[in-house]
């Protein structure tokens, strides 16, 4: 039996205190298995981003526990959490979030530099992953010289290059037109199929959900449904 990449047990998150307290997540139990291509859907305020932040070790739950590859996050200090994010988790954000002063290749190499990978290997791997996301020849372009779709491809390449056990994407297609969205979803799906990379995508874009092989629905901070397709 496979070990889950991510396990959430009784995860809850409350923002604020007293009468102003807002329960963003309530008693969430979830296992993300290796090779999953899962979408996390739900209306605005349902807790998608909060759950992705918990799973991404960016935030800590008020109750319950998140485990990544058998490692309980609650027992890690800030530095260990940084290491975990660097080496085990890839992030793709809605607003691309590339470093504006670095070229496409440098943005990708930056993560590897933080990992301490030697320069030669960094360059080879960055070019390889840029080719994989269809950006061969655009290595030296800065984010401002790339289209929205191209920037999001660079962001995906950056998320993949550290060879994470899971890629978390929060509304990755929200700023893209339909043609670019279809291409990007097809790209993530292909990477999932060919390289076995686990994706957990927070979205309410039906074009993304079409490719989903597991659909998790959140409502008022609770998992309303978890369907394998």
């Amino acid at each position: 039996m496979k070990t889950p990449n991510v396990t959430c047990r009784g995860v809850g998150k409350v923002f604020g205190k007293g009468e102003l307290a807002v329960k963003a997540l309530v008693d969430v139990d979830l296992d993300i298995m290796p090779g999953d291509f899962a979408t996390l859907a739900g209306p605005s305020g349902s807790g998608k981003t909060t759950l992705l932040n918990m799973v991404g070790a960016l935030d800590t739950p008020t109750s319950g526990e998140v485990t990544i590859e058998g490692q309980p996050l609650g027992k890690l200090n800030k530095s260990e959490l940084s290491d975990l994010r660097l080496n085990r988790i890839g992030f793709v954000f809605q607003a691309y979030n590339l470093i504006p002063v670095l070229s496409a290749r440098e943005n990708i190499e930056f993560v590897m530099e933080l990992q301490g990978i030697p320069a030669n290997e960094r360059k080879t791997r960055a070019q390889q992953v840029l080719a994989e996301v269809g950006l061969k020849g655009l290595d030296n372009r800065r984010p401002s010289e790339l289209s929205g779709g191209q920037q999001q491809r660079v962001a995906i390449a950056r998320a993949l290059v550290s060879r994470p056990s899971i890629v978390l994407a929060d509304e990755p297609t929200a700023n893209l037109d339909s043609k670019t969205t279809s291409e990007l979803v097809a790209l993530m799906y292909r990477l999932n199929q060919e390289l076995g990379i686990t994706f957990l995508i927070g979205t309410h874009d039906p074009r993304v959900m079409e490719h989903s092989r597991r659909h998790i629905e959140l409502l008022d901070g609770r998992i309303a449904s978890d369907t394998k397709i």
Binding site: G56, L58, K78, S79, S82, D83, L84, R85, L86, N87, I89, F91, F93, N97, I99, P100, F110, V111, L114, R158, S162
Partner: peptide, 16 residues
């Protein structure tokens, strides 16, 4: 601020 948040999210330690 946003960019520093991104760097931290990507795994850059605070001392870096």
């Amino acid at each position: 601020t946003h960019e520093f948040g991104l760097l931290r999210a990507l795994g850059m330690k605070s001392r870096r």
